[in-house]
Each structure stands twice: as structure tokens, then as C-alpha cells.
Amino acid sequence: MFDLTGKTALVTGASGAIGGAIARMLHARGATVALSGTRVEPLTALAADLGERAVVAPANLSDAAATEALIKTVEEKAGGVDILINNAGLTRDGLLMRMKDEDWDTVLEVNLTAGFRLTRAAMRGMMKKRWGRIVGISSVVGATGNPGQANYAASKAGMIGFTKALAAEVASRNVTVNAVAPGFIATPMTDALNEEQRAAISSRIPAGRLGAPEDVAAAVLYLASEEAAYVTGHTLHVNGGMAML
């Protein structure tokens, strides 16, 4: 089950905790992985750790030309993009009344528009092969909202709509398009929280704990696999029960 031998996966935001875990898991199942991100050092370290079947492809996804070029680079370096994981994302939190245009634009550009551009560029190859997997990393916040994150929530909800529309377009070509919506996941970002804050968050999660990056990666692996061929346009919530959607 879930064997990805012979497939190539591009993971954006692979320098982060969740992206790194996704890349590791797909690689462990036999995929060749292309690691993208803005910070080269963690990408190189991850590639070295993985050994064979790992290539580094840094890109700044707020740059349209660089985003388009990334797919070409990966096709040249790794031989194609069978599986595209649109994971790269960032936050610029703030209450709407004080939110600057650039905070809105940056979040939408990286979290949503870059995924659109990458998907468009990768789709050509997938259509030809009559096989492809697109997985977008959304967020529970895209479904439930969260004060201080109007921009982030909009980008993550946007990804879900994008996923559904595209899924309908390309289903007949054996290309599936799905999203994974993580809840609170333990990452360096949440490490900064104090005990009290952590307890407050955990009390809202029926599972009683924060998720691990591997919890998200396992959901991505499933949607990227051959076994999930009949699942498309779906959003898989990985949130310990904090929002049952």
C-alpha cells in the first residue's frame, strides 16, 4: 500500500516542519522528492539526510517568474512532477482594521496564487501522463475562521475552492486534486507558546494534544497514493477533532 516508487513529488515549503515531514514520508515510500523553499540551508540538510532520490530546488514563491521556472527546474532535475504538494505558506496576522494591503497581498500571493501558478505549470505533464496528484495544504482556519487572520483564512479557504473547481476539471484524466486542513500542529512556531497557552489550546482539542507534522504527512501520503485514485475534490481535516467538518 501507498507505494510511490517511480513517482516524483515536488514539496514547496520543504524547509518548514510540516513540509519537511511530508517530504520525508513521500521519500520513505519510494518517491523522488524535489525540495523547494526560500531557505537553502535546511533544504540542503534535508536532502543530504535523505540521500538518494532528493533534489534541492529553492524558489521565492512571491515572485511569479521564479514560481513558473520552478516546475521547469524540477522537470529537468528530477524528470517530471507527478505529485505536487502546495505546502508553502506564511502568516501576516493582525486585526483587519489595522491590516495593511501588503500583509493581505503577500499572504494571498504565497499561500494561494503561487499554488495556482505551480499547478498550472505542472498540469501539462500530468495531462500527458494521464496521472497526477495535487495536494494543497489548507488549514482548519480556512473552514472555521480565526480573529486576526482574515488574510490567512481567506487564502486557506480559497485553496479549498480552488481544489474543488480543479478537481472537477481534470478528474477524467486521472489527476486528483485534494486538500489537507491541519489544525494545531506542533512546530517551531508553536514551541514559542508557554505552558498556559498550550494547555488552553489543548483543552479545545478532543484528542487532548497538538498534532505532529507526521499526522499531516500521513494524510498527504494517502491522497498522493494510487490507492486514493477515487478521492478528489476532498478536504481531509487533520485536527484531533477540534472542528468536525
Binding site: 501539462r124 476539471e169 481534470v170 477524467s172 484524466r173
Partner: peptide, 11 residues
């Protein structure tokens, strides 16, 4: 052909 076929043909 469907609309997607026409796009693929052009490609």
C-alpha cells in the same frame, strides 16, 4: 471532444 480535449489538442 470535451472542452479539456480541445485545450489538450491545442497543446
Amino acid at each position: 471532444a470535451d472542452s479539456l480535449d480541445t485545450v489538450e489538442l491545442v497543446m
